[in-house]
């Protein structure tokens, strides 16, 4: 037990915990939106497209996250625009964007002279290397997103639930969709630090899957997701420290384990009692 507390003395570890907490807030809110609107695949496209930005930023000697944010927001708006016009095969368009972003990223990383040392951390993430500056950016975004969902809860919820109907009530749904798409893209980019491009989306979906075992209400789902997300990150973080394994992978593994356990228990419980939902 003494060992467990001693690791909290290291600043990299407390930084990691703070980053984990901020990420669970961001992923809890944005992920609930993604999962409810069933745009997980789109979000995957945005995540991978952002690698193009990372590669280009490397090449031009800029902050890679700036590049990633730029590409992510651009592709998020692009997808939202494309899907609002009919006649676009959405899934194909996303797949093209997905691989195009990765391709651009790889080309520019290869064109950059010298070895790109942090490439692996972009692909798989490393929560233990989070810096003070990262934390400041994440805090600002987390505060903005939290205030945003508190103030605009109903417009966002109603647009996500039934955009066409919301539009008939006079709501500017297209504007809301673009705004939310931008915010979601930013939350994904800032969470890449934690779990990497390849794994990050699981932080936006597994906590929500666990949450949906307990609730079918948007607001409650956000709270549950934040809670389970943070537990998963915390356990994964400690596990990765002790077993010296990549943090991103351990976090995901922990979350899936929690999901499987709770799902299993809830199945057993629901089998032993009559269904609680109203009959027809």
């Amino acid at each position: 037990m003494h060992d467990l507390f001693s690791i909290f003395q290291y600043s990299f570890f407390t930084n990691a915990i703070a980053a984990g907490f901020l990420t669970s807030i961001l992923a809890g809110i944005a992920g609930t939106y993604i999962v409810s609107r069933k745009i997980v695949f789109i979000s995957g496209g945005i995540t991978h497209a952002s690698f193009g930005g990372i590669g280009m930023a490397y090449f031009f000697g800029l902050n890679p996250f700036l590049g990633a944010a730029f590409f992510a927001v651009l592709s998020a708006l692009g997808i939202e625009w494309a899907t609002s016009k009919a006649n676009v095969r959405e899934d194909s368009a996303i797949a093209i964007l997905w691989s195009l972003g990765m391709a651009i990223g790889i080309i520019f990383v290869f064109l950059t002279p010298g070895y790109a040392p942090n490439l692996m951390s972009f692909l798989f993430g490393n929560i233990l290397t989070v810096t003070q500056t990262d934390l400041i950016y994440m805090s600002v975004l987390a505060i903005l997103v939290t205030i945003g969902i508190l103030v605009f809860y109903r417009p966002v919820l109603y647009t996500a639930f039934d955009a066409e109907y919301a539009q008939t009530t006079g709501l500017k749904t297209q504007l809301i969709k673009y705004a939310v798409a931008t915010v979601v893209a930013l939350t994904i980019v800032f969470s890449i630090r934690i779990a990497g491009i390849i794994l990050v989306l699981s932080l936006f979906t597994i906590p929500q899957s666990i949450a949906s075992i307990f609730t079918r209400d948007f607001k409650a789902m956000i709270f549950y997701s934040i809670g389970f997300g943070f537990v998963g990150i915390l356990v994964g973080l400690i596990g990765s420290y002790y077993y010296n394994l990549p943090s991103g992978a351990i976090i995901i593994f922990t979350l899936v384990l929690i999901w499987a356990l709770i799902k299993g228990v809830s199945k057993i419980v629901s089998m032993s009692k009559p269904p609680s939902y109203p009959p027809k």
């Binding site: 109903r154 919820l157 639930f161 949906s212 209400d217 948007f218």
Partner: peptide, 11 residues
């Protein structure tokens, strides 16, 4: 979609 019946009405 995770939304309560009363919230649908209020929309």
């Amino acid at each position: 979609f995770p939304i309560k019946v009363i919230d649908v009405v209020l929309s």
